[in-house]
Amino acid sequence: MTGDETLQRKTTFAAILIAAASFGTASAQAQEFPCDSVEWIVGWGAGGGSDTFARSIAPGVSDALGVPVTVINMPGASSIVAMEEVLGRDADGCTLFSITPDQLTNELTGLTELSYRDLDAVMRAHVDIGMMYGAGDGLQSWDDVTSASEDVLVGGTGAASFDEIVVQIVMDDAGVPYRYIPYENASDMHADLIGGRLHLIYDEVSVMNPMIEAGQVTPLLALADERLEAFPDVPAAGELDYTVPPSLWRGVSVAGDAPEDVVAMLEAAFLKAAETEAYTEFEEGRMLNLYPGTLGAADFTSLLDREFEAYRAVTESK
């Protein structure tokens, strides 16, 4: 046996020891997380945007925390049913709650007495860019929209909802007469646009991308500060000097006044999970990476306050 080989063996052995030791600390760290398991309550149905987001990132979060993370759907009333459930539980940070701008608009439109301030923000994961779309022989470009003389029929999901507020911001700035047509089910809205019964719709790119690629719908305006790399031909609201409406984002929170160290551990776990391949692939596949959207707890909290005021200004001007 040569010295080299011995050395090699020793280094291998050392490497194993180090690996074992770091594994030990990893599991020690995991034990620090005070919950045996984490339940993640999603206030929307299975298969929707919030649900697929939760199910895509949950495995990574579970690995980082060292405890199982279970996603539970509790759909109903624009996720207020789920929010009540979460706020009714102990504020120990062991129950997660998915949030979207709906938590802000639900409060403003008086759908619930609950406030987004009752929650502690953990992390914002991504931004799902909104766009305005036309189809077929109808409106072919944003210029067609702004030169319309008759009422433009604009579809969106929900009445007195996030979509309606966004449509109001855009159409008021464009100075075009319009009527907002609310839908409960986005599929019906897509069929009405492609079928020629609606002129324009608002929806997020993650949902519309297959229809854009197939040429069934045409994106006319991106609701972003500047043109998106993925859609170089589509004008952006910012370059037309419109007020850029807040975008739809997806994030996670816990019931308010949770222990700070638990929230910090959750934040770290989520930020780590957002880097995993499984999750970045999911973002890529759904075009959720067009705009850098990941925010930590502090930045996310101040964003929530800013956007709440922005929505309040619009709903009060009505």
Binding site: G76, A77, I80, A159, A160
Partner: peptide, 20 residues
């Protein structure tokens, strides 16, 4: 439940689950 076209609550008896 919530009226789909105006967002007004109808016959919800203050029960959140009935909003949808």
């Amino acid at each position: 439940g919530i009226d789909q076209l105006t967002g007004v609550k109808r016959f919800d008896f203050q029960v959140t689950s009935l909003l949808s």
